[in-house]
């Protein structure tokens, strides 16, 4: 992380913490923001956040490690989360998962080398009547079939600005 980028993120953290009166109830919204812009919460960011809320960095780490949508490891630009709950399982998520691995060339829990995609499992997405279901970032995809996987992935790859890296804290 470049010093200037860290400074920029830090100033955002301070601004957001102030908006919440430095009260701990603002911690998770700040963490969600940092996760969104830098795709993970780095040790440096955790220290800056701890400082802004006047708590120990370990407290911040404890919260980050608890929630599955927050991470200490850097995620891809697009996080693909395939539902593994029983109903999606019964609807054929295994074949979908297999094809996701084929298309992306990675296994579950990994990120593509170009930093574009992370592939994960998730628990119930609340789409049990339309499984198999998966989330790509905040978008929901239902009744996914192995044949549809490539098109869905391509849709994100070809999205305008998908490859632009500037203006983002890396």
């Amino acid at each position: 992380m470049l010093a200037s980028e860290r400074d920029q993120l830090k100033s955002e953290i301070i601004k957001m913490a102030k908006k919440h009166d430095h009260h701990r109830s603002g911690l998770i919204p700040v963490l969600q923001h940092v996760q969104n812009v830098s795709r993970h919460i780095s040790p440096e960011a955790m220290q800056d956040i701890a400082e802004a809320f006047k708590i120990h960095p370990v407290e911040v780490h404890g919260v980050v490690s608890f929630y599955s949508f927050l991470s200490t490891e850097k995620k891809g630009k697009f996080v693909v989360r395939l539902c593994r709950t029983i109903t999606c399982d019964m609807a054929g998520n295994e074949a979908v998962g297999n094809q996701l691995e084929n298309e992306l060339g990675i296994e579950f829990g990994e990120t593509t080398s170009d930093g574009m995609f992370t592939l994960e499992f998730t628990n119930c997405l609340g789409m049990c009547d339309q499984g198999p279901a998966m989330l790509v970032n905040d978008d929901i995809h239902t009744k996914v079939t192995p044949e549809k996987v490539a098109d869905i992935i391509d849709g994100y790859k070809n999205r305008f600005g998908a490859h632009v890296t500037t203006g983002e804290h890396s």
Partner: peptide, 21 residues
């Protein structure tokens, strides 16, 4: 207030803990 991916936060006291950061 957005959750961050934890089933347990559907339990009301866990939900409150989560709201409090």
């Amino acid at each position: 207030h957005m959750g961050s991916g934890a089933y347990i936060c559907g339990e009301e006291t866990a939900l409150i803990e989560s709201l409090e950061g």
